[in-house]
Design a binder for these strands. Structure first.
Lengths: 144, 144
DNA sequence: CTTGACCCTAAAGTTAACTTTAGAGTTTAT
DNA sequence: ATAAACTCTAAAGTTAACTTTAGGGTCAAG
């Protein structure tokens, strides 16, 4: 497919796709004789990943690192790949932990504060993040 | 405490703290007679929250929305607060879901690809995100 | 009582991640 | 075969989130 079609299917603007190419994030599969970029379903898949990674706070550089994580035995040792993957894994686990805390705090606000009998001053996300608000929560909900 | 101390304890640069004040994210508790900003432990707590929210991809505007989520019965109805909280909750759940997928894909890479007998070409994060790679994973690890 | 560390404001500069502009070639439907 | 729709490059412009600069007060120690 050409760039316009890829743009429609992913929601990224055409210029953004060309920008990502310059940044090394997404190379077209080939070019037509007249110079038009051509993409395929792998391009689509890659862009969906880029979209997800951006939504959880990875920069384009970090996404690039995630995308080049491949066992390319000519270029990188298996151990190298594993080390990078483990670092990214730790970053991701940390993000999940932080988000789980925020989620629990918001549950406290929606479940307990609104209409509850606690004073209004305690109904902020910051006070909901305190341990004394969290320890009586449903363990199903707190677990990640 | 004054701005330099707050900067040291949070890792935010002094100028960033003044910038956040302009953006309405963090007001000093008071000013000394000579105009110095004064902060307390609540400021510290708020900055830690800002740091976490930034790390998982929220913009300063979104963080502002999260921070002003409070049951202020004079300004907003309880229903309004609940609606905003529920929207944020959905955003956060989506982020957690995406991150869990990436985490699982990275586990596939570190556990199965490196040293495994699969061909090297399948050892990318994108192929690890495919369903056929995930369905044989440990359910403990996949659950959020 | 002055020197060094700290604080102030306002405005300009920087960086990442786009977006727009300008000018030109290509493809497709009528 | 020509107009509309699509594509190309290079360069300049924009926005969010800072960071730096310039010029000047404040405070604690010697």
């Amino acid at each position: 497919m050409r760039i316009g079609e890829l743009s429609k299917q992913t929601g990224f603007q055409i210029e953004t796709l060309r920008y990502y190419e310059k940044q090394g994030l997404l190379q077209p599969v080939s070019r037509t004789k007249s110079g038009y970029r051509e993409y395929d379903s792998a391009s689509l898949k890659q862009l969906k990943f880029i979209h997800q990674a951006k939504s959880v706070g990875f920069s384009l550089n970090e996404i690039s690192e995630l995308l080049t994580l491949r066992v390319d035995r000519d270029q990188h040792s298996c151990a190298e790949v594993k080390t990078i993957a483990e670092q990214k894994l730790e970053q991701i686990e940390n993000k999940i932990t932080e988000l789980a805390k925020m989620r629990d705090a918001l549950y406290v606000i929606t479940d307990a504060c609104c209409g509850g009998d606690e004073p209004a001053t305690s109904c902020t996300i910051l006070s909901a993040l305190d341990d004394d608000h969290r320890e009586n929560q449903d363990p199903e909900r707190v677990a990640v």
